[in-house]
Amino acid sequence: MKQKLKVIVVDDEPLARRGMLVRLADFPELDIVAECGNGDEAVQKIRDLAPDAVFLDVEMPGLDGFGVLKQLQQMQVTLPYVIFVTAYDHYALSAFEVQALDYVLKPVEKDRLSTAVNKLLKNFDARDDQRHKDQLAAVVAQLTGEQRDQILQRLDKAEPVMSDKYPEAISIKDSGEITRVPVTAIDWVDAAGDYMCIHTKDGQTHILRRTMKELEQELDPKLFVRVHRSAIVNVNTIAKLQMLANGEHQLMLTNGQAVKVSRSYKDRVKMVFNS
Rank of each mutant, 00 (worst) to 15 (best):
Asp111Asn: 07
Leu120Asn: 02
Leu136Gly: 01
Val259Gln: 07
Glu109Arg: 06
Met196Pro: 00
Asp190Phe: 02
Leu24Lys: 06
Pro167Ser: 05
Leu155Trp: 00
Gln217Met: 10
Tyr103Leu: 00
Gln3Tyr: 06
Arg112Glu: 12
Ile198Lys: 01
Ala137His: 05
Thr115Trp: 12
Ile232Glu: 05
Arg18Cys: 15
Arg47His: 10
Gln217Trp: 04
Asp26Met: 06
Arg47Gly: 15
Pro221Ala: 10
Cys197Asp: 12
Arg112Gly: 03
Asp64Met: 02
Phe273Pro: 00
Asn118Trp: 02
Ile151His: 01
Ala191Phe: 02
Leu121Pro: 00
Lys165Met: 11
Ala169Asp: 04
Ile232Arg: 02
Gln135Asn: 07
Lys133Glu: 05
Ala245Ile: 08
Gln76Phe: 15
Gly176His: 08
Lys260Gln: 06
Gln130Cys: 08
Thr205Ala: 13
Ser264Gln: 15
Asn123Arg: 12
Arg229Ile: 04
Asp174Phe: 13
Val235Ala: 06
Asp89Leu: 01
Val82Ala: 12
Val259Lys: 08
Leu101Met: 13
Asp89Val: 05
Leu15Pro: 09
Gly145Arg: 14
Gln250Ala: 04
Arg268Cys: 04
Phe66Gly: 08
Ile172Cys: 15
Asn118Tyr: 10
Val183Lys: 15
Lys165Phe: 13
Asp48Val: 03
Arg148Asp: 09
Arg148His: 09
Leu215Phe: 15
Lys2Arg: 14
Ser114Val: 06
Cys197Gly: 05
Asn274Met: 11
Leu136Tyr: 13
Lys213Ala: 07
Ile207Pro: 10
Phe66Arg: 05
